[in-house]
Computed example of a mutant assay.
Amino acid sequence: MYLKSQKSSYKRFYRLFIKRHFFGITSPLRVLPDFFVIGAGRTGTTSLYHYLDQHPSLSKSAYDELGFFDVNFHLGLNWYRSLFPSVFTKFRIKLKTDFFMTYDVTPSYVRRPWIAKRIKKLFPKSKLIIVLRNPVDRTYSHYHLHRKFGETRTFEEFIKNEIDDVSKWDVELKDDNYFATKVENSSLARAFYAEQLPIWFEQFSKNQILIISSENLASNTRKTMNEIFSFLNLPEYDVPNIEKVNVSKKSKMNSKTREILLEFFKPYNEQLYDFLNKKFDWEK
């Protein structure tokens, strides 16, 4: 037990003062996030991370996908602080614009329910932004991410295997273990949004959560960004650079495969529409 504690302390020291160096040393003089972009993955959150930083009153974290409330939670709040702007940056920006906010963009948060409780405990008044994308397109994008890491199956083979796997699930209790194993390892289940959102609405009030569509973010970027700024109680601002970030080139999906996926996701999307009392244009 003592050796384990020693090892944990050393890891914290190494990640804070060796890896983060100056930023780690100055962590007590740094702020913590005011809001979170919690997901979903493959929806344009990396682009959103950069769009947000263009607002005069916003200052980004060191990078996106910090993962503090998940894989890096053991590193502690000092490490987390080292990733954010200093109090002097906050003072300078607030002096100039009357507002200041910083943020954490980690798209894996939304599909991990235990994180909702962690954020609620530490940041009960924070606001949350969730980007949702047509599950068909999100799955295709996720497949191409797999390709970068050695996936050799065709998309059709990949989808068939995934659908066969999900069809065998017999899970009544959608607990942390379900999300950590089943959902985490399934490209399809990562787009079962109606399963992922309830815990966030249980922990946070509706006026703390903004849900936008990836499609609107991509096609009506400046309008969508101003919806976000309004939600954050910030002045309107037309983001000058709306170039998309982290976009991979891919061929058009086979129409028959698309029809299969549209049919597969239809009941899951209907559950989402009922939950949100809002419908997205995802039927094509």
Rank of each mutant, 00 (worst) to 15 (best):
S255N: 09
E263R: 13
K121M: 11
V239I: 15
S251L: 12
R112S: 05
P33N: 08
N220Y: 11
V110H: 00
N177R: 13
Y109F: 14
Q271W: 05
Y143L: 12
L276H: 05
D165C: 06
T97A: 12
K60N: 15
D176L: 10
I93G: 02
D175W: 11
D176P: 00
K279I: 08
D164L: 13
F264Q: 05
M101K: 10
K127V: 03
D170H: 12
K278Q: 14
L210Q: 13
R42Y: 04
V183A: 06
F231N: 03
S82E: 06
A191F: 01
F192M: 06
Y268M: 08
D70C: 06
F123H: 04
R138S: 04
R153A: 15
F69D: 00
Q271S: 12
E215I: 03
D281C: 06
S248A: 14
R138K: 10
Y51R: 02
Y63W: 10
F35Q: 00
P135K: 01
S219R: 09
P235I: 07
Y273N: 13
H50T: 02
K284Y: 12
V239E: 06
P124M: 09
I228W: 00
L16F: 05
F69V: 08
D165M: 12
K244A: 15
K284P: 01
D64P: 04
E202L: 11
R15N: 15
I260T: 14
E65N: 12
E151T: 08
L210T: 06
L232K: 03
S205R: 13
A180L: 11
L132T: 06
F123G: 01
K90I: 03
R12W: 07
S213N: 07
V31H: 03
H21P: 00
N161V: 07
L210F: 09
T43G: 05
I159V: 15
T257A: 09
S57L: 06
I93T: 09
K7A: 14
M253D: 08
G67L: 06
T181H: 11
K96T: 08
Y193K: 02
P240R: 06
F23G: 02
S108Y: 07
R81F: 07
K11M: 10
Y140V: 13
V245T: 07
F69C: 06
S248M: 09
N161A: 14
K117Y: 08
A180V: 04
R133V: 02
K206P: 07
F123M: 07
F84M: 05
S82I: 02
E283F: 11
N277S: 14
I199T: 05
S205K: 14
L188W: 00
K160C: 04
I211F: 10
Y103F: 15
E215Y: 06
F23P: 01
R112N: 08
W114K: 07
L232D: 01
V183P: 00
I93A: 04
F13M: 15
L52H: 01
S141C: 10
A116L: 06
K160F: 06
L83K: 02
V37H: 01
F99R: 12
